[in-house]
């Protein structure tokens, strides 16, 4: 089966501190992968390397057949195909929710305004906040904002979705509404890489689990096996602390 994301021997340093060590990872289309690990283990950095919000210094990252390198054209093309959802939502506060969603399709994909807004409304309906379309981000609750951010990413019709701790900044009662949207997305066949501590979500949708520590992938296993029969001691310790 062809791979949509390939990381070969990726190394990355922040100054002298090595954040990613010899990362090898392959993701097939429609696969859902949940990445977990203690804070500072490099999991956010790893997925941010996939759309080059962070640059890697060694190794190769190939996304959908295109190698990520210095050339800017490639990077913008890749970023348009890879949706990203952030911990802090990062909606554009000066634009309405509808404009947040239709802006990139209009200016990056060059769609006509009307068509872009139709796509935006469809996606807002999908995350069930189409009734908030004309409000500004500051008027929405955290859960609604994060769902709007997911809709904004979906409007670019990405092949891959990256989630960087999407529920960590939310109040407990709002986590579920965001996770429901993500489960729905997973069932629709989207390729997803999710950094999260929500193990219930992981058990429900993930094909594979990845456990990272100190910049290395410690364990990569099928979800069931990962939770029932973890191999490394480090993973066992981690799971015993969060489950």
């Amino acid at each position: 089966m062809s791979k949509i994301i390939e990381l070969k021997n990726v190394n990355k340093w922040f100054d002298k501190f090595q954040v990613l060590k010899d990362i090898d990872l392959e993701v097939a289309p429609q696969e859902k992968i949940v990445i977990c690990g203690p804070s500072g283990s490099g999991k956010s950095t790893l997925i941010r390397c996939i759309n080059r919000l962070e640059e890697h210094q060694e190794g190769n990252i190939i996304v959908d057949g295109t190698e990520l390198s210095e050339s800017t054209k490639n990077i913008e093309k890749i970023r348009a195909e890879v949706g990203m959802v952030f911990q802090q939502f990062n909606l554009f506060p000066h634009l309405s929710i509808l404009d947040n969603c239709s802006l990139a399709p209009i200016w990056v994909k060059k769609l006509p305004k009307k068509q872009a807004e139709e796509i935006a409304m469809d996606n807002l309906k999908r995350v069930q906040i189409d009734d908030q379309a004309l409000k500004f981000p500051g008027q929405l609750s955290g859960g609604q904002q994060q769902r709007a951010a997911i809709a904004r990413a979906l409007c670019m019709e990405p092949k891959i979705m990256l989630f960087d701790e999407p529920t960590s900044a939310l109040d407990p009662e709002m986590i579920k509404e965001v996770l429901d949207v993500m489960v729905d997305l997973a069932k629709g066949g989207m390729t997803m890489l999710v950094v999260t501590h929500e193990m219930g979500f992981a058990k429900e949708v993930a094909d594979y689990m990845i456990f990272m520590d100190e910049g290395k992938i410690v364990e990569r296993a099928k979800t069931k096996e990962f939770f029932e029969n973890p191999k490394s001691e480090r993973t066992k310790l981690f799971l015993s602390q969060i489950l």
Partner: peptide, 18 residues
């Protein structure tokens, strides 16, 4: 402006000028 605004714009495929 928070760094997140730059990252969100970049992640949607916008170049420097856009």
């Amino acid at each position: 402006l928070p760094k997140g605004q730059y990252e969100a714009a970049k992640s949607l495929g916008m170049g420097y000028w856009r």
